[in-house]
Design a protein around this nucleic acid. Structure first.
Lengths: 352, 352
DNA sequence: CTGAAAGCGCTTACAG
DNA sequence: CTGAAAGCGCTTACAG
């Protein structure tokens, strides 16, 4: 009831209240509270009077009004085109989100999670859904697939955004923080070849997201570097079609090393690991196995670790950079992060 | 460049643009777009004209302006007084967040994660930090400890909020969705006693959060119901002070059953489990063990499971209920959810 | 050094 | 059935 304490007064104090209390204009209050903007000089007496009144009234700026009037509200959006986020507890995306949260906190930004955006249904991601992101100063997007039209529209309107994951759509105009799957995958294959393997198979999903095609590129590059034939290396397969017979057939054909990609669903790597087991084989004694990305189904598998947390942090930093750069001179920043190799226990010399 | 497509036009369309295109006033546009508010009747011709223009311009309402002018923007806040959220990947709070996200999506609400609020430092949770929550229509709070003043202030200003976890501060005026630890803990002890145990110890943290005191209450109630002495049952201990000697001492004294609380840090249960192991004992052969809440260190332990995901969902529902109820007639809703018992493998008959 | 005024994009009485 | 006007709480030229 005592508005002097700011408690129970029913209505939070606004600048006009401070102005009345301090006997100055609301403009002056705004100026004082905004700190020292260049070119503006306030008498110390006024400053103190305003500050004291603000303190007494328990003033805190209204973030909504601030956002409407200026163009910053220190809120960053997070919008996903992937399913299973963040509902899936063991989800692929959670570590990324953790990184996003950490860096956002470090930079004094709050996060807006746009919900109901997890459906794989691209029709849900229309302009209406996506324009919600404009409450924020800028937005992070992710998911294996991207609806180009709404992103193009946001980009065209000068809204700062950063994609998490490499993207080459829209003539390379999409800023992103991604992962260098090409190099990491190539290094894994190099290692296999150094162990003497000459006949290998790369099992991948039948899905052309950049993270999949980049892994394939890395694998094939390495195979070529070794002077080996690439023809039969790549095998596209659904997780449901991966069984012991597939693995058995490969062995018959003299294959000694298997490589599999670990993506956001994780189902393919899991299926292969199960199939190897079901075929009564063990790694690396019977067969070497490499997983491109760490699989929860076999964490000790050899391969590499996707720097998901760092990816989140990096994306936030790039986004804030954009936000704080004048729209005219924003370069389209595209960055790839290196992966940490995992020695693991599933790669060994060629058996026999 | 063609503003008719809404692409590349530089500036998103607003109601004024639609008004100009349709040859009506901006008010009319607002009215049409708001749907049929009672008492307002628009001619079908006008409606169609406005709708078509809006479609053509790719209009999407600006949530910030909407929020400032009205009082809803379909954003819910999440603010935590606990540390390790959501940074800790195996965090206690993540399943709650998942529930929050699910229900928010179901109810068409976006989520604002207030960051930098995870510090245990209560001084950070001042009015300024907390008033940020007012960008949203209402806010969820959690954490074992609560700074009363800012919450009192928000409550007093009529801002809808729901605490996640039982709270009795502020004369019971804090709405919450909590967990019925009393009943769940009592049931666990009942089970121990039914197995013949007569001498038990309840190990708890030295921290008086409601979730801890409620567990203790449940334990002691059950002990009393069985007509056993309560004197030595409760033991307060830091995780660092729990070792094999403590467990050994209890056995010497004839204790046959141990109960430990699993809280957000999880350190105490983990320490006890390690201590039992280090003492060369196994459960339930040498000793029965119950964990009040599932411990990641021993998921198969007997006890109960805190319905964290459901807790999140429930809290969102209560919050939205509040938001959609006129400020005058909002009851202070306080709900407790039941826990799911875990049979587990660590409770057995009294040895020997 | 300070204030009056316009404006951010909406909603909501209030008039016609 | 529709429009002119005020207002939400700020920021930002623009005058003095």
């Amino acid at each position: 009831m005592d508005s002097g304490t700011g408690r129970g007064s029913g209505r939070p104090a606004r600048q006009a209240d401070i102005a009345a209390a301090a006997g100055v204009s609301q403009t002056t209050v705004s100026l004082v509270l905004a700190g020292n903007r260049d070119g503006v000089r306030l008498s110390e007496t006024t400053r103190q009077r305003v500050l004291k009144a603000a303190e007494k009234l328990g003033y805190v700026p209204d973030p909504v009004a601030t956002r409407l009037a200026s163009s910053r509200n220190h809120m960053l959006g997070v919008y996903t085109f992937a399913s299973a986020f963040p509902t899936d507890v063991d989800g692929f995306y959670y570590p990324i989100l953790v990184g996003v949260e950490e860096e956002a906190a470090a930079l004094g930004q709050d996060l807006v999670l746009f919900t109901g955006t997890g459906g794989a249904d691209a029709r849900a991601h229309d302009r209406t859904a996506i324009r919600r992101t404009r409450v924020t100063d800028g937005c992070l997007f992710f998911g294996r697939h991207i609806p180009e039209e709404p992103i193009d529209w946001l980009l065209g309107s000068g809204f700062p955004l950063v994609y998490i994951g490499r993207r080459d759509e829209l003539d390379g105009r999409i800023p992103f923080a991604g992962v260098d799957y090409v190099t990491a995958s190539g290094a894994v294959v190099d290692r296999l070849i150094a162990q003497g393997h000459r006949s290998l198979r790369y099992l991948r999903e039948n899905d052309d997201a950049p993270s999949s095609t980049d892994r394939e590129t890395g694998v094939l590059d390495a195979v070529r570097r070794a002077g080996l034939p690439t023809a039969k290396v790549v095998v596209r397969r659904e997780a449901d079609d991966v069984g012991p017979d597939l693995v058995g057939g490969w062995r018959q054909a003299g294959v000694t090393a298997l490589i599999v990609e670990e993506t956001d669903t994780g189902s393919l790597a899991k299926a292969l690991i199960a199939a190897i087991d079901a075929a009564g084989l063990s790694c690396p004694d019977d067969l070497s196995l490499a997983v491109l990305g760490r699989s929860p189904a076999l964490p000790e598998a050899s391969g590499f670790e996707v720097p998901r947390r760092e990816l989140g942090r990096r994306a936030v930093r790039l986004l804030v950079d954009q936000i704080t750069t004048a729209p005219g001179k924003r370069p389209t920043v595209q960055e790839l992060l290196p992966c940490r190799p995992i020695t693991g226990t599933t790669i060994g010399p060629v058996p026999g």
